[in-house]
């Protein structure tokens, strides 16, 4: 599954890097309109984008977490205190009350683009 949807025409796509700049199964952090966005490449193809801010440690570090899945749900574990976040929805899998923002992301001509309107 890819978190790319046909957003309203208002969505502006901003190119942040080449797909090859993100090693498979790792993440990077991009600066998009002054917001820190963590972009993850899961396997070769799938991309997800969530906020880089880790609400548990109050640090901007989620892009440096380990990517994987829990019961098939793609997720990242915070590198600080190891809480898991659903990459598709931003929900914290270890604390139902916490959720981080998600962003739309797509690949065009091997370039990674982030939608500038937050979902």
């Amino acid at each position: 599954m890819q978190a790319i949807t046909n957003q309203s025409t208002a969505t502006r796509w901003i190119t942040v890097c080449a797909l090859n700049d993100i090693l498979p199964n790792t993440g990077v952090c991009a600066l998009v309109n002054d917001q820190q966005v963590a972009i993850f490449r899961v396997g070769e193809e799938d991309l997800y984008a969530i906020a880089n801010y880790d609400p548990f440690s109050s640090a901007y570090v989620l892009s440096r977490g380990i990517v994987g899945d829990r019961n098939g749900i793609p997720k990242v574990a915070s590198p600080v205190y190891k809480q898991n976040f659903n990459l598709a929805t931003g929900e914290c899998l270890d604390n139902a009350e916490v959720r981080v923002p998600t962003f739309s992301v797509r690949v065009v001509d091997q370039q990674v683009q982030v939608g500038s309107t937050q979902l």
Partner: peptide, 10 residues
């Protein structure tokens, strides 16, 4: 099976 996680990967 699956994609791995922060337990099995390290």
């Amino acid at each position: 099976q699956g994609k791995g996680c922060e337990i099995c990967k390290p």
